[in-house]
């Protein structure tokens, strides 16, 4: 508690550096192979708690792959081999004792394409709590309301909770997916290009939501949209060809990049 209080007194930069020094996720020497093809090369990166970290880079640079490593979604793909270590709050997530479902509960994810289940809005939110064993209706009602409020969707849908989620607009669907992820109370929220399929207004709403959410959650976002990364994130990691080129405070990365490649990408010389 005291640390947090004192943080406010510090200069912005210092506070952020400090946050980086006490990360929630530590990735060290992570390499990932799809069969013979190496997709991640020796990535070492820390992700600070309750901040937004953006992964940027050209298509195929491995930023989504890296993101999916954090909740082990890559396990679903065949012939994937991983070396190195990822620790969340100091625990190695590849520990054989680690229950992968438990991990995914702690590390929520929002996908590029909104993927509501073909069920009602209520059931979509309640899905997570239900599979984790919550059966009590009142508790579920409470979770649904809380999650929808957190996803800034409550006022829009509170009267039609039992309608199909597929009837919502694209932006609403995506916020529903965020709400659904929040319903299981994760610590970290992974967002894989969450706005790429949305119009600017819907995008703006989600961005507002993210700024709100970072008060309580650690957010990692993969984005193609440079402005979005610059606007939203506190930290930015630039990746290229499976390698982490540069990571740091967003402001610094965008204004005074250390690497030539980063500058080239940010200024739009390739990408």
């Amino acid at each position: 508690m005291t640390t947090e209080l004192s943080l406010d007194l510090l200069a912005d930069d210092t506070r952020m550096d400090l946050a980086l020094a006490t990360p929630i996720v530590e990735i060290s020497n992570l390499s990932l192979f799809y069969g013979a093809k190496q997709a991640l090369h020796d990535v070492t990166l820390n992700i600070p708690e309750r901040h937004i970290t953006a992964f940027i880079g050209p298509s195929g640079c491995g930023k989504s792959t890296l993101l999916r490593c954090l909740n082990r979604m890559n396990d679903l793909i065949d012939h994937v081999r991983i070396s190195g270590r990822i620790a969340i709050r100091g625990h190695d997530i590849h520990d054989p004792q680690q229950d992968v479902t438990e991990l995914r509960k702690r590390v929520g994810m929002v996908f590029q394409k909104s993927n509501p289940f073909p069920k009602s809005i209520y059931e979509n939110i309640a899905f997570g709590p239900r599979i984790l064993g919550t059966r009590d209706r009142a508790t579920l009602d409470e979770i649904v309301e809380r999650s929808l409020r957190a996803a800034a969707l409550w006022d829009e849908v509170k009267d039609r909770l039992n309608e199909s989620a597929l009837g919502m607009s694209g932006g609403q669907q995506q916020r529903l997916c965020i709400g659904r992820a929040l319903a299981v109370e994760p610590e970290i929220l992974l967002m894989d290009e969450p706005c790429s399929a949305l119009d600017p207004i819907a995008t703006a709403r989600i961005e507002d939501l993210m700024l709100e959410l970072k008060q309580r959650y650690t957010i990692v976002i993969v984005t193609h949209n440079m402005q979005q990364a610059a606007r939203m994130s506190d930290y930015t990691a630039f990746m290229y060809m499976g390698k982490l080129i540069e990571v740091g405070l967003t402001r610094k990365v965008f204004t005074t990049p250390l690497e030539q490649q980063t500058e080239d990408y940010i200024t739009g010389r390739f990408g």
Partner: peptide, 10 residues
């Protein structure tokens, strides 16, 4: 859809 469910810890 499967990925969505799995990512919720199912």
């Amino acid at each position: 859809l499967k990925a969505g469910a799995l990512s919720l810890g199912a």
